[in-house]
Simulated scan of single mutants.
Amino acid sequence: MATAPEVLDPEALAAERDLVARAVAGDRTAVGEVVLLLQDPIYRLALRMVWRPADAEDATQEILLRVVENLNSWRAEARLLTWAYRVGVNFLLNLRRRTPQETNQLSLDDFSEGLKDGLAEQDYRGPEATLLTHEVRLNCSQAMLQCLARDERVAFVLSDVFEVSSAEAAWITGATPAAYRKRVERAKKRLGSFLTRTCGLSNPDAFCRCSRRVEKALELGRVDPRRPAFAAHPVTPGGRSVEEAEKQMVRLHDAAAVIGAHPDYAAPRDRMAAIAGVLGSGRFPLLE
């Protein structure tokens, strides 16, 4: 089992100790600050693991409630967010709800073959072409992640998308550093192979282009032009927009860039308000 990662910022850790101590003592303002600190990173993690925003909202709510419920067990062996990631990963790896790819046991090879079906000869030129092309790209990169086993998926996301250090990520997942590195290596190899033979963003010689998948995605209902799930998703104040994330991806040209090129999504504020309501419901003794 991995040991807890070393904390490198004593001042930040001291501030988090104080915040958590006040929250555990029943300070509702401090509890709100904890939730505010964690909600967007946890939501982005959940979104990578469960694909759809609505499912990510449900998962985020449950993870944050578990975090608050167990705040008194945080011993500052890692940063608060790192510890919250551990709570979240444990929940997400054991989630009963399956994505469609998981239910159908869809492999990356199967996914690649499916992308050939309905691929248009020309770029989509219809209404909202840029928005819908962004939506197809973002939806596709989410979908391809679901073709990985959950332990490989979370390892890749922590390492290559969130850029968490190997020591921290191994601790978060409860794996040894060696086992964690193997999971990342397997995930990168599978995704790299898929992108090289399939994705024109990663390899200009590959067959698939987001702009040529728009019509088929609209036909299948995988993209809703009235309510795009990803391209118009709210972002964290000061975070990357869709356009900024895509520029970063174009500069890098690798698997991590393609899959990581999502904006810095913000957890939906109406759901966060619902969490605040639950926290005030009497379920949590530390708030009584």
Rank of each mutant, 00 (worst) to 15 (best):
R22K: 15
R251N: 09
A274K: 15
R181V: 12
S241A: 04
G280A: 08
G88T: 10
T99K: 01
S241I: 06
A245S: 15
E128L: 04
G260T: 12
L19K: 12
L220I: 10
C147N: 09
P100M: 02
V87Y: 01
S166C: 00
L131N: 00
V161H: 02
E11A: 00
L119S: 14
G126A: 06
H233V: 08
V24I: 13
V278F: 10
L132N: 01
H134K: 02
P234V: 02
D264H: 03
D160H: 11
D254P: 08
A76C: 14
V89A: 00
R183W: 06
V24M: 07
D55F: 06
H262V: 00
L38R: 02
E62A: 11
E219A: 08
V184P: 10
A23C: 06
F194H: 13
E135I: 00
L47S: 01
V34R: 01
R186C: 08
E135R: 02
D58S: 15
G88A: 12
P263N: 04
R79D: 07
L64P: 08
E113G: 13
P177L: 07
C208V: 15
Q101E: 14
K116M: 15
E244S: 15
A267F: 10
V35K: 05
P268L: 00
K188G: 10
N70E: 12
K216L: 05
A129N: 08
L201E: 14
V87I: 08
G200Y: 12
L47G: 04
A179P: 10
A23P: 04
E33M: 13
A56S: 13
S165V: 02
E219L: 13
K189R: 12
W74K: 08
L287Y: 06
R197L: 09
P225S: 03
D205F: 03
G174C: 03
G221C: 08
E168G: 02
D151V: 03
S159T: 10
L252M: 13
L47N: 08
V161K: 10
P100A: 00
R66I: 02
V223T: 06
E246T: 09
L138Q: 01
Q101T: 09
F162L: 11
L119M: 11
L287N: 07
T99P: 00
N90R: 03
T236N: 01
A78M: 02
I63T: 12
K216R: 14
L132D: 02
V164P: 02
E163Q: 09
V20C: 03
D109L: 13
S73I: 09
F284R: 01
L218Q: 09
E135L: 04
N94Y: 00
T3L: 14
T196H: 09
L45F: 15
Y265L: 03
I259V: 15
R150H: 07
E57T: 15
T198I: 11
G260C: 14
